[in-house]
Amino acid sequence: MNRAITLGRRRIVLELRQFFRDRESALFNFMLPMILLVIFGSVFANQEIGFGDITFAQYFLAGMIASGILYTSFQNLAIAIPMERDDSTLKRLAGLPMPKAACFIGKAGMVFVAYVAQVIILLIVGVLFFGINLPSTADRWFTFAWVSVLGLLSCTLLGIAFSVVPRQGKGASAIVAPIVLVLQFTSGVFFVFNDLPTWMQNFASIFPLKWLTQTMRYVFLPDGAEVIEVAGEWQLGLSALVLTAWTIGGLVLALLVFRWAPRGER
């Protein structure tokens, strides 16, 4: 176990190096939320959404931070791992005297560091240009911490499990990106969740992103803003429950389906 942690730590550094040096992955998984925040934040800077003077820019920031979880974990891994399976990265690792856990510690650590860096940049941009107020209570920061961790855990495991779906590394982004986009449209990222048709709200409620965006709104919107939520409250307990269920489900799925060898080799 010690060895898995020691090697896992070294793998985090290596994974991060590869993550940021690969231009497509750095742009698509890391830079995208900032670009979208600047665009949407600027277009809807003054559009109020029905509670006090909250603008869509503020609403959107919560959605982008939640999306950042999905980008750095699920989207990142569900695209990168099929490519690594295709180009024998995983096969090479499987042949090394390395505890397999080290590989997953490396992936999870990379996801975590990339997300933290992304959030810091999003918050700086949000505060400087879009009048976002950082949470002032310890309670909100605590919620921010647990929802981030649960979100990263569940979506990392789901990304690892989903990596067996694309037939080829090359086509992975064409499968994963639309899924992420559909979840964003239906989960209250690009539109106010309350304005969506009920069936769409119900659909989104199955998946983690809806709960991530809602909890991030609790963290970043002022007191009383829960009146613009569908339930009229923040449902923090339910969020924790749904995300925990996805974490357990993701773990079971990942353990069952994950494969090291390229397709057709066994």
Partner: peptide, 21 residues
């Protein structure tokens, strides 16, 4: 096991991985 693997050297027919390092 890992002790056994540490005694082997494997040169795969792989040439596209690790490209960014």
């Amino acid at each position: 096991d890992l002790t056994w693997k540490a005694r082997l050297g494997i040169v795969l027919q792989a040439d596209r991985d690790l490209g960014d390092l």
